[in-house]
Protein backbone atom coordinates (compact mmCIF):
# COMPACT_ATOMS: atom_id res chain seq x y z
CA UNK A 1 0.00 0.00 0.00
CA UNK A 2 1.40 3.39 -0.96
CA UNK A 3 2.03 5.93 1.83
CA UNK A 4 -0.39 8.89 1.48
CA UNK A 5 1.45 12.01 0.33
CA UNK A 6 1.33 14.81 2.96
CA UNK A 7 -0.81 17.76 1.95
CA UNK A 8 0.77 21.17 1.38
CA UNK A 9 -0.68 22.58 4.59
CA UNK A 10 0.65 19.58 6.56
CA UNK A 11 4.11 20.23 5.14
CA UNK A 12 3.97 23.87 6.17
CA UNK A 13 2.77 22.92 9.66
CA UNK A 14 5.62 20.39 9.95
CA UNK A 15 8.16 22.98 8.86
CA UNK A 16 6.80 25.52 11.35
CA UNK A 17 6.86 22.95 14.13
CA UNK A 18 10.44 22.00 13.31
CA UNK A 19 11.43 25.66 13.16
CA UNK A 20 9.98 26.22 16.62
CA UNK A 21 11.54 23.06 18.00
CA UNK A 22 14.98 24.04 16.76
CA UNK A 23 14.58 27.60 18.00
CA UNK A 24 13.18 26.58 21.37
CA UNK A 25 16.46 25.86 23.25
CA UNK A 26 17.88 29.21 22.20
CA UNK A 27 14.61 30.94 22.95
CA UNK A 28 14.43 29.41 26.44
CA UNK A 29 18.07 30.28 27.12
CA UNK A 30 17.44 33.87 26.03
CA UNK A 31 14.35 34.03 28.21
CA UNK A 32 15.99 32.55 31.31
CA UNK A 33 19.44 34.09 31.11
CA UNK A 34 18.63 37.25 29.17
CA UNK A 35 15.16 38.52 29.96
CA UNK A 36 14.50 37.07 33.39
CA UNK A 37 17.36 38.95 35.10
CA UNK A 38 16.24 42.14 33.37
CA UNK A 39 12.67 41.73 34.55
CA UNK A 40 13.81 40.60 37.99
CA UNK A 41 15.95 43.72 38.33
CA UNK A 42 12.82 45.85 37.96
CA UNK A 43 11.40 44.02 40.98
CA UNK A 44 14.59 44.27 43.05
CA UNK A 45 14.78 48.03 42.43
CA UNK A 46 11.68 48.43 44.59
CA UNK A 47 12.92 46.21 47.40
CA UNK A 48 15.34 46.12 50.26
CA UNK A 49 16.96 42.96 49.06
CA UNK A 50 18.77 40.49 51.29
CA UNK A 51 20.87 37.58 50.13
CA UNK A 52 19.15 35.15 52.44
CA UNK A 53 16.26 36.82 54.22
CA UNK A 54 12.96 37.67 52.54
CA UNK A 55 13.14 40.99 50.66
CA UNK A 56 11.08 43.97 51.85
CA UNK A 57 9.07 46.20 49.52
CA UNK A 58 10.25 49.82 49.89
CA UNK A 59 8.41 51.58 47.07
CA UNK A 60 10.48 54.18 45.23
CA UNK A 61 12.92 54.67 48.13
CA UNK A 62 15.88 53.23 46.17
CA UNK A 63 15.27 55.67 43.33
CA UNK A 64 15.00 58.53 45.86
CA UNK A 65 18.34 57.43 47.35
CA UNK A 66 19.87 57.46 43.88
CA UNK A 67 18.46 60.94 43.23
CA UNK A 68 20.03 62.52 46.32
CA UNK A 69 23.34 60.68 46.17
CA UNK A 70 26.11 63.15 45.22
CA UNK A 71 28.34 60.29 44.13
CA UNK A 72 25.86 59.31 41.41
CA UNK A 73 26.41 62.70 39.75
CA UNK A 74 30.19 62.32 40.04
CA UNK A 75 29.99 58.80 38.58
CA UNK A 76 27.85 59.96 35.63
CA UNK A 77 30.21 62.90 34.99
CA UNK A 78 33.20 60.56 35.00
CA UNK A 79 31.44 58.08 32.73
CA UNK A 80 30.42 60.73 30.22
CA UNK A 81 33.94 62.15 30.30
CA UNK A 82 35.32 58.67 29.69
CA UNK A 83 32.80 58.01 26.90
CA UNK A 84 33.59 61.28 25.14
CA UNK A 85 37.36 60.83 25.38
CA UNK A 86 37.08 57.20 24.45
CA UNK A 87 34.89 57.83 21.41
CA UNK A 88 37.10 60.68 20.21
CA UNK A 89 40.33 58.76 20.60
CA UNK A 90 39.60 55.07 20.24
CA UNK A 91 36.68 55.37 17.84
CA UNK A 92 37.58 58.23 15.49
CA UNK A 93 41.34 57.82 15.30
CA UNK A 94 41.32 54.22 13.99
CA UNK A 95 39.07 55.32 11.09
CA UNK A 96 41.70 57.79 9.97
CA UNK A 97 44.52 55.31 10.48
CA UNK A 98 42.66 52.62 8.52
CA UNK A 99 42.00 54.92 5.61
CA UNK A 100 45.64 55.96 5.46
CA UNK A 101 46.73 52.36 5.81
CA UNK A 102 44.67 51.40 2.76
CA UNK A 103 46.99 53.56 0.68
CA UNK A 104 49.85 51.20 1.46
CA UNK A 105 50.80 47.88 -0.13
CA UNK A 106 48.81 44.75 0.68
CA UNK A 107 51.79 43.21 2.47
CA UNK A 108 52.11 46.27 4.73
CA UNK A 109 48.38 46.20 5.43
CA UNK A 110 48.59 42.55 6.48
CA UNK A 111 51.62 43.18 8.71
CA UNK A 112 49.91 46.16 10.35
CA UNK A 113 46.74 44.14 10.94
CA UNK A 114 48.73 41.47 12.77
CA UNK A 115 50.52 44.09 14.85
CA UNK A 116 47.19 45.68 15.66
CA UNK A 117 45.53 42.43 16.60
CA UNK A 118 48.13 40.77 18.81
CA UNK A 119 47.86 43.09 21.86
CA UNK A 120 44.04 42.81 21.93
CA UNK A 121 43.98 40.83 25.17
CA UNK A 122 42.24 43.29 27.35
CA UNK A 123 42.44 42.00 30.93
CA UNK A 124 46.09 40.96 30.75
CA UNK A 125 46.86 44.14 28.86
CA UNK A 126 45.12 46.30 31.46
CA UNK A 127 47.03 44.65 34.30
CA UNK A 128 50.33 45.32 32.55
CA UNK A 129 49.42 48.94 31.88
CA UNK A 130 48.78 49.41 35.59
CA UNK A 131 52.47 48.70 36.21
CA UNK A 132 53.58 50.71 33.20
CA UNK A 133 52.11 53.75 34.89
CA UNK A 134 53.94 53.13 38.19
CA UNK A 135 55.39 56.53 39.16
CA UNK A 136 58.87 55.27 40.11
CA UNK A 137 59.33 52.04 38.24
CA UNK A 138 56.91 52.26 35.32
CA UNK A 139 57.82 52.28 31.65
CA UNK A 140 55.88 55.48 30.94
CA UNK A 141 57.98 57.60 33.25
CA UNK A 142 61.06 55.78 32.00
CA UNK A 143 60.24 57.04 28.51
CA UNK A 144 59.61 60.54 29.89
CA UNK A 145 63.04 60.49 31.56
CA UNK A 146 64.65 59.27 28.35
CA UNK A 147 63.08 62.15 26.46
CA UNK A 148 64.13 64.62 29.20
CA UNK A 149 60.49 65.44 29.83
CA UNK A 150 59.04 66.00 33.31
CA UNK A 151 57.75 62.83 34.90
CA UNK A 152 53.98 62.56 35.30
CA UNK A 153 51.89 61.04 38.05
CA UNK A 154 49.59 59.33 35.53
CA UNK A 155 47.00 57.39 37.52
CA UNK A 156 47.81 59.30 40.72
CA UNK A 157 46.93 62.66 39.19
CA UNK A 158 43.16 63.27 39.36
CA UNK A 159 43.38 65.42 36.21
CA UNK A 160 45.33 62.87 34.23
CA UNK A 161 43.91 59.62 35.58
CA UNK A 162 40.99 59.34 33.18
CA UNK A 163 43.15 60.10 30.14
CA UNK A 164 45.61 57.47 31.36
CA UNK A 165 42.79 54.95 31.41
CA UNK A 166 41.83 55.69 27.82
CA UNK A 167 45.35 55.43 26.44
CA UNK A 168 45.59 51.61 26.53
CA UNK A 169 42.27 51.52 24.68
CA UNK A 170 44.01 52.95 21.63
CA UNK A 171 46.14 49.84 21.49
CA UNK A 172 43.99 47.24 23.17
CA UNK A 173 40.78 47.96 21.30
CA UNK A 174 40.96 46.96 17.67
CA UNK A 175 38.15 48.63 15.70
CA UNK A 176 40.76 49.52 13.07
CA UNK A 177 40.69 45.90 11.93
CA UNK A 178 36.97 46.11 11.28
CA UNK A 179 37.39 49.31 9.27
CA UNK A 180 40.19 47.79 7.20
CA UNK A 181 38.01 44.76 6.47
CA UNK A 182 35.16 47.04 5.43
CA UNK A 183 37.44 49.22 3.31
CA UNK A 184 38.67 46.20 1.42
CA UNK A 185 35.07 45.67 0.28
CA UNK A 186 34.72 49.13 -1.30
CA UNK A 187 34.65 48.64 -5.12
CA UNK A 188 37.82 49.88 -6.84
CA UNK A 189 35.65 51.30 -9.67
CA UNK A 190 34.32 54.00 -7.39
CA UNK A 191 37.83 55.29 -6.73
CA UNK A 192 38.73 54.99 -10.41
CA UNK A 193 35.64 56.99 -11.38
CA UNK A 194 36.50 59.61 -8.79
CA UNK A 195 40.07 59.82 -10.08
CA UNK A 196 38.76 60.27 -13.64
CA UNK A 197 36.71 63.17 -12.35
CA UNK A 198 39.96 64.61 -10.95
CA UNK A 199 39.11 64.14 -7.25
CA UNK A 200 41.89 64.74 -4.73
CA UNK A 201 42.65 62.22 -1.99
CA UNK A 202 40.70 64.22 0.57
CA UNK A 203 37.66 64.36 -1.71
CA UNK A 204 37.91 60.62 -2.40
CA UNK A 205 37.86 60.00 1.33
CA UNK A 206 34.97 62.37 1.89
CA UNK A 207 32.79 61.31 -1.05
CA UNK A 208 33.68 57.63 -1.49
CA UNK A 209 35.34 56.09 1.54
CA UNK A 210 33.39 57.61 4.41
CA UNK A 211 29.91 57.12 2.86
CA UNK A 212 30.79 53.46 2.16
CA UNK A 213 32.03 53.02 5.71
CA UNK A 214 28.92 54.61 7.13
CA UNK A 215 27.03 51.41 8.08
CA UNK A 216 30.11 50.11 9.88
CA UNK A 217 30.78 53.46 11.54
CA UNK A 218 27.15 53.67 12.69
CA UNK A 219 27.31 50.21 14.18
CA UNK A 220 30.69 50.76 15.81
CA UNK A 221 29.52 54.09 17.21
CA UNK A 222 26.56 52.33 18.76
CA UNK A 223 28.80 49.68 20.34
CA UNK A 224 31.23 52.34 21.43
CA UNK A 225 28.54 54.40 23.18
CA UNK A 226 27.08 51.36 24.94
CA UNK A 227 30.51 49.96 25.82
CA UNK A 228 31.99 53.15 27.16
CA UNK A 229 28.90 54.00 29.19
CA UNK A 230 29.27 50.60 30.85
CA UNK A 231 33.03 50.78 31.39
CA UNK A 232 34.07 48.81 34.43
CA UNK A 233 37.18 46.64 34.17
CA UNK A 234 39.59 49.39 33.12
CA UNK A 235 39.13 51.64 36.18
CA UNK A 236 38.40 48.66 38.45
CA UNK A 237 41.76 47.03 37.74
CA UNK A 238 43.88 50.12 37.20
CA UNK A 239 42.74 52.68 39.76
CA UNK A 240 39.93 51.17 41.83
CA UNK A 241 38.03 54.37 41.04
CA UNK A 242 40.65 56.72 42.50
CA UNK A 243 42.40 58.93 43.22
CA UNK A 244 39.50 60.10 45.33
CA UNK A 245 36.57 59.41 43.03
CA UNK A 246 38.29 60.73 39.88
CA UNK A 247 37.77 57.53 37.88
CA UNK A 248 34.70 56.03 39.57
CA UNK A 249 32.28 55.16 36.80
CA UNK A 250 28.58 54.34 37.07
CA UNK A 251 29.01 50.59 36.66
CA UNK A 252 31.83 50.58 39.20
CA UNK A 253 29.58 52.38 41.63
CA UNK A 254 26.77 49.90 40.96
CA UNK A 255 29.18 47.06 41.72
CA UNK A 256 30.36 48.68 44.92
CA UNK A 257 26.79 49.38 46.06
CA UNK A 258 25.81 45.78 45.42
CA UNK A 259 28.83 43.92 46.76
CA UNK A 260 30.49 46.49 49.02
CA UNK A 261 27.51 48.11 50.70
CA UNK A 262 25.21 45.09 50.13
CA UNK A 263 22.58 47.56 48.96
CA UNK A 264 21.25 45.57 46.04
CA UNK A 265 18.06 47.61 45.80
CA UNK A 266 19.84 50.92 45.28
CA UNK A 267 22.42 49.28 42.99
CA UNK A 268 19.62 47.91 40.79
CA UNK A 269 17.79 51.24 40.80
CA UNK A 270 20.97 52.94 39.59
CA UNK A 271 21.41 50.23 36.93
CA UNK A 272 17.90 50.99 35.67
CA UNK A 273 18.70 54.71 35.51
CA UNK A 274 21.85 53.91 33.53
CA UNK A 275 19.81 51.68 31.24
CA UNK A 276 17.45 54.61 30.60
CA UNK A 277 20.33 56.99 29.85
CA UNK A 278 21.95 54.54 27.41
CA UNK A 279 18.62 53.89 25.69
CA UNK A 280 18.14 57.66 25.25
CA UNK A 281 21.62 57.99 23.77
CA UNK A 282 21.04 55.07 21.44
CA UNK A 283 17.75 56.61 20.33
CA UNK A 284 19.49 59.89 19.47
CA UNK A 285 22.25 58.05 17.67
CA UNK A 286 19.78 55.96 15.61
CA UNK A 287 17.63 58.98 14.84
CA UNK A 288 20.40 61.27 13.62
CA UNK A 289 22.97 58.83 12.31
CA UNK A 290 21.20 56.14 10.25
CA UNK A 291 23.26 53.30 8.85
CA UNK A 292 21.88 53.29 5.33
CA UNK A 293 23.62 55.84 3.16
CA UNK A 294 21.10 55.43 0.30
CA UNK A 295 18.21 56.01 2.69
CA UNK A 296 19.82 59.25 3.88
CA UNK A 297 20.46 60.37 0.34
CA UNK A 298 16.90 59.60 -0.79
CA UNK A 299 15.57 61.48 2.26
CA UNK A 300 17.73 64.44 1.30
Amino acid sequence: MATPKPSKSQGIRYKTLMAWLFTLPGFIAQLVFGWMPVLFSFVVAFQKYYFIKEPEFVGAQNFKDVAIDPLVITAFQNTLYFATLSICLTFALPILVSILLMEMSRRTIRAMMILWFIPVASTAGIAIWKYMYHPNLGLMNGIMRLLHLPELKWLDDPNLAMFSLILPGLILFGPGLIYIAALQGVPEELYEAAEMEGASMARKIWFVTLPRLRPIIAMMLLFSIIGSMQVFELPFIMTGGGPGYATTTVVMYIYSLAFGAYNLGKATALAIVLFGVIMAMVFVQRRYFPENIDETQSRA
Binding site: D156, D157, P158, G242, P243, G244, Y245, S256, G260
Partner: peptide
Protein backbone atom coordinates in the same frame (compact mmCIF):
# COMPACT_ATOMS: atom_id res chain seq x y z
CA UNK B 1 36.73 52.48 54.46
CA UNK B 2 36.67 53.19 50.72
CA UNK B 3 35.07 56.58 51.34
CA UNK B 4 37.70 57.46 53.96
CA UNK B 5 40.47 56.32 51.63
CA UNK B 6 39.04 58.53 48.91
CA UNK B 7 39.19 61.52 51.28
CA UNK B 8 42.85 60.92 52.16
CA UNK B 9 43.77 60.10 48.57
CA UNK B 10 42.35 63.40 47.41
CA UNK B 11 44.20 65.22 50.19
CA UNK B 12 47.43 63.68 48.88
CA UNK B 13 46.91 64.00 45.13
CA UNK B 14 45.25 67.41 44.90
Amino acid sequence: SKAVHALYAEAITS
